[in-house]
Nucleic acid binder design. Structure first.
Lengths: 351, 351
DNA sequence: GTGAAAGCGCTAACAG
DNA sequence: CTGTTAGCGCTTTCAC
């Protein structure tokens, strides 16, 4: 390979002058119409004669024209982007592979809407403050909010700013103020615990998610309903969605010295930790203890044995969220919209 | 809760007229200077008297002013966004929790640069074509490309478009054309296999990643160098990074009937599958077979026993990539930049 | 239906 | 150092 100096001898690299992008005026000129007509053709083609529309499209193709989003956004008075907000306390989300499904799906669904996905995170309270400033400063047209806690100060700021927002999961205490998409946590948990019961298990313990989240609370409620009068607090421990907390919760129950032959864990991720604790305690799964998770994440297949779980329709959730957000941003919908999706029991060998 | 009708009776919601955002002219007026001065104050404050700068900042604070990105982008002739491109064949990335680290870090590092992260994916060849169109149509200022394959048609289009691009990992066959950030795959693999050797293991098998990726190839090379003359192809199987392929590869080696007392797997994710295969074959880890992974992902801790692995500095990689991309986009750097980061051996109980 | 023209809010080149 | 003045490329009335 020649030394850089040798190359330099040839003078500056032959940079083909990056031809400026064609503008709407170039298209108009080529099509022999006015700029306004091209604009109309670009935006639905209403009030444009078919023949004219065709020639405009030909010109667009010939010039390889694409609209300049910045100019369009400026003219339309919008930003063209949507924020996917993940607040600090949901950081564990990044641990969960399913999380990528949201990003991927949002990105895909937003593109045809001419909007970009802007991923934002807040690591601590001060960053959350900044994030709130950023969002309410008009840098985005809408917000997709992941699984918030009820005490989220961000929620009140979002409400006050009247920024179109869709929450993934139900914002406890703010149900009426926001649009949201969720699954029927309670019923799903009821179903899987009922499945456990159906396989002959009688003493079913649980490690829940955080009870100040709709998922944590809903899943515990469903568990309780399925057990009915035989619900026993001594078989209940709490976690924070992390794998480690699943292990700790299970250890707590084991230490109480109560017998149990099944364990319903609030998430697959926590279930991995739970199974580690069970294994260390010498209990085999599912022989001694049947284990059920929730979410049907990749973790469910990493478990040994593979987890019986509830399929959480993340992709569908994301699609619905974008659909609703679009309605909100377009102003076609003023009041909050609520969607509840159904889940499916996935039986594998852990229970 | 009142029925919707009852609420309607109160008439349209009391919508406080969303006060239009203050513009640069409002700031100029309040500060008693010209618009140009405010603009200069906004962009570094060069050529602005300190006293004037202060009064402009006061006005900005008083009005709660923030710049309109669309207008700025239009005036500056840039888009304000950067694409994180994940092509089809890297889809498994979404399975890997570490992947979220890239999104999170990119997003965080880009914000102070006034740029947004736009996540784009291509599911199949036709989508990849569209993605190429999109990127080269001038919708983004730069590209962050995840672990590409050498046969990526996208690569040649990106080169041709001269769009600032940074590749995560080394683009085999395109090393000179792109800037990239990678780890020393070969040395890292060499180190961990040497560790295996150091613990007294003598017959070390491996399940590699795809050999047309720099990671897959580099890790195999390091394995081979560590083994030296005792390298034996019968102990080598290939995977595609997926958990399932780790299992298949391990099964292949087991079926060959050769003895081995250690297994180096190309990624933690594949290692999970490998351990499942070993367990089913009645081999215990690490007693019968020591297992080592690569990446130090969350999966490494999900494994039972926890995986000995190589810590892959994803966050550092992402930070470097953004730094380089910024240089490229700003035009401060014309020729490709290459960075190789170092890794660290993480010894846990699997080996 | 279509053209003309007025901005959208900001940057940057140019005087002074 | 600062004010003035062109645009950046597009949408959107408003006439015709």
């Amino acid at each position: 390979m020649p030394a850089p100096e040798l190359r330099r001898a040839h003078g500056p690299a032959p940079v083909p002058p990056r031809r400026p992008r064609p503008t709407i005026d170039d298209v108009a000129r080529l099509a022999g119409v006015s700029r306004g007509t091209v604009s109309r053709a670009l935006n639905g083609g209403r009030n444009v004669r078919p023949a004219v529309l065709a020639s405009v499209n030909d010109a667009i193709a010939a010039l390889d024209y694409t609209v300049n989003q910045a100019a369009r956004n400026l003219a339309r008075g919008r930003t063209g982007s949507v924020a996917f907000v993940i607040s600090e306390r949901q950081e564990h989300l990044f641990e969960d592979p399913n999380w990528g499904v949201f990003v991927k799906t949002f990105s895909r669904e937003l593109r045809p809407l001419g909007r970009h996905l802007l991923v934002t995170t807040a690591q601590d309270t001060s960053e959350e403050q900044l994030l709130g400033d950023y969002l309410t400063a008009g840098h985005v047209d809408g917000v997709l909010l992941a699984l918030p806690y009820d005490d989220e100060p961000l929620l009140s700021r979002l409400v006050a700013s009247r920024l179109p927002t869709v929450v993934l999961g139900r914002p406890l205490g703010w149900e009426a103020a926001f649009s949201w998409v969720m699954i029927d946590e309670e019923q799903s948990a009821f179903d899987i615990v009922t499945h456990l019961l159906g396989t002959g298990r009688t003493r079913i313990a649980t490690v829940t998610g955080p009870l100040h989240t709709s998922s944590g609370k809903g899943r515990l409620d469903g568990y309780a309903r399925a057990l009915g009068p035989s619900f026993d607090p001594v078989l209940v421990a709490h976690g924070d969605w992390s794998m480690h907390s699943g292990r700790l919760g299970t250890e707590q129950i084991l230490e109480r010295g109560v017998e149990f032959d099944a364990l319903f864990v609030g998430s697959d991720h926590m279930a991995i930790g739970a199974m580690q604790a069970l294994r260390e305690a010498g209990r085999s799964v599912p022989a001694d203890v049947a284990v059920a998770g929730f979410d049907d994440s990749v973790a469910a297949l990493m478990a040994d044995p593979p987890l019986t779980t509830v399929h959480n329709p993340f992709e569908e959730t994301a699609v619905e969220a974008v659909r609703i957000l679009d309605e909100l941003m377009a102003g076609r919908q003023a009041s909050p919209l609520h969607v509840v999706l159904s889940t499916e029991l996935v039986v594998r060998s852990s229970a």
